[in-house]
Design a protein around this nucleic acid. Structure first.
Length: 120
RNA sequence: UGAGUAGCACAGAUGAUUGCGGCUGCAAUUGCCAAAAGGCAGCAGGUGAGGAAAGUCCGGGCUUCAUAGGGCAGGGUGCCAGAUAACAUCUGGUGGAGGCGACUCUAAGGAAAGUGCAACAGAAAUAAACUGCUAAUAUAUUUAUAUUAUAAUUUAUUUAUAGUAUAAAUAUAUUGGUGAUGGUGGAAAGGCAGUGUAAGAGACUACCGCAAAGCUGGCAACAGUUUUGGCUAUGUAAACCCCACUCGAAGCAAGACCAAGAUAAAAGCGAUACGGCUGCCCGUCGUGCUUUUAGGUAGGUUGCUUGAUUUUAUUGGCGACAGUAAAACUAGAUAGAUAAUCAUCACACGAUUGCGUGGACAUAACCCGGCUUAUCGUGCUGCUCAUUUU
RNA sequence: GCGUCGCUAGCUCAGUUGGUAGAGCACCUGACUCUUAAUCAGGGUGUCCAGGGUUCGAACCCCUGGCGACGCA
């Protein structure tokens, strides 16, 4: 039981090349607050990359938005299909939004991409 | 009570659930890997951003490189004394400016070492000329007086014209005197008042200012005072410059260690070798394999948090600060952790007593000392001024 | 971490030993034309990024800050 917990967690995209691969797949959906890119990576894990431009705000704002996105993704990661690279880009209108707004925007995009497991 | 001034402290608190990064532990009894050391995961415990962490504007530690010694160039600083590891910082003074005051501000050396610049305006911008004032002489003109001549008129006389003399004024010229009158300007030749003079002028006088020398006080900057002197010397050095002091360069992506792959060298094996076509032979094509060493890429480890540290007490000092003693250990990430939700309390605002809304600026990245800038609000202390009351 | 450069009219840019800021395009007005364009004549529309300081005087010199661009490791 202890071993299985590892698969609840997700890894992060680190290098610039990883981001470029996801962008070049050109599968994206967007709403007012966020843009989401998805690509199958052929492994058993989920990998998340968060990108917040300098136009959005200063370091405090950017860091907070990244944390909100990461928290939302973490809480939903149980229900996401394995083997995906996901990149989430925050838009300028996300500045000042609360966790609930961010969470609903994430859910909306995940439904559009159909990466949620049907049951549960 | 109101207005102000100087400074200090804080930067919401507690709890619950779900999470993240370091650290410690898992011992006889957590799981997996491993010969072991240990690693990965899990569990438990404890811990986890600031007053500015920001800007990167100064200074230092640390590291590497360079460096016999000295000088030039270039940069920085610039009243005095002190503090400090050091500083463009700080403390205490001095001078200056502002404020009724508490208090605040002050890049504040040198302009007789030299060079440059000073638009427009103004006579003229550093230095004389011009203009002005004024004396004498000459000439000219005008006026007044005196006198002479002529003419007219009349009783005397008077009037007109011309000449001469004297005086005054004006103009011109010459020879002198004088030195600031000249609208401007940021700045105009010490200021102001008087005496004086042909006219004037520090030429002289009083007061003020300036300079030099002496004395007193002070470590010093400087202050006070006395005497003397002449009034000559514009401003600008955040213009060049001079003087005094001072500065080697680069930066933790510094640097150190380990080290895949690839490269190079050496040694060994192999031309009877190894590999492919091809199961074997022939044929043909290619040249390797192992070990060690070297520098060292990717990557990893370290540098890396025990320090000019923090807190308390005490001693010295006006103070910055320094000494002594005791206690404490308080983030260390590496695409980058410190979050989400809820409850209660406190605070602010709005409503009016139930409630609703709200949380400034800003996220460590080797470490310190400062400076500058941003900022919701809260609390406290010293002092000043005004008004009222006692 | 260290360093360099820039910010001037609506746009692109000049402007230095400090003296009241200009060029081209655009724009506005008028002329020409049946009308438009082209052409001609006239017009400057500006917080010289912001705030302090030095100076008689600052776009220019000095300091502090803001924004933007770039370079090295």
């Amino acid at each position: 039981m202890v071993i299985g917990l590892k698969y609840q967690y997700f890894e992060t995209l680190k290098s610039n090349n990883d981001f470029k691969k996801v962008y070049n797949n050109k599968k994206s959906y967007a709403n007012k607050l966020l843009v989401m890119y998805v690509k199958k990576n052929g492994t058993d894990t989920i990998r998340l990359g968060v990108s917040v431009s300098k136009k959005v705000g200063n370091s405090i704002v950017r860091h907070r938005l990244a944390r909100l996105i990461r928290e939302s993704f973490r809480l939903h990661s149980k229900n996401i299909i394995r083997g995906l690279d996901v990149v989430v880009v925050a838009r300028a209108s996300l500045k000042g939004c609360s966790y609930n707004e961010t969470d609903s925007a994430m859910l909306h995009l995940m439904k559009l991409h159909k990466i949620m497991k049907e049951d549960l």
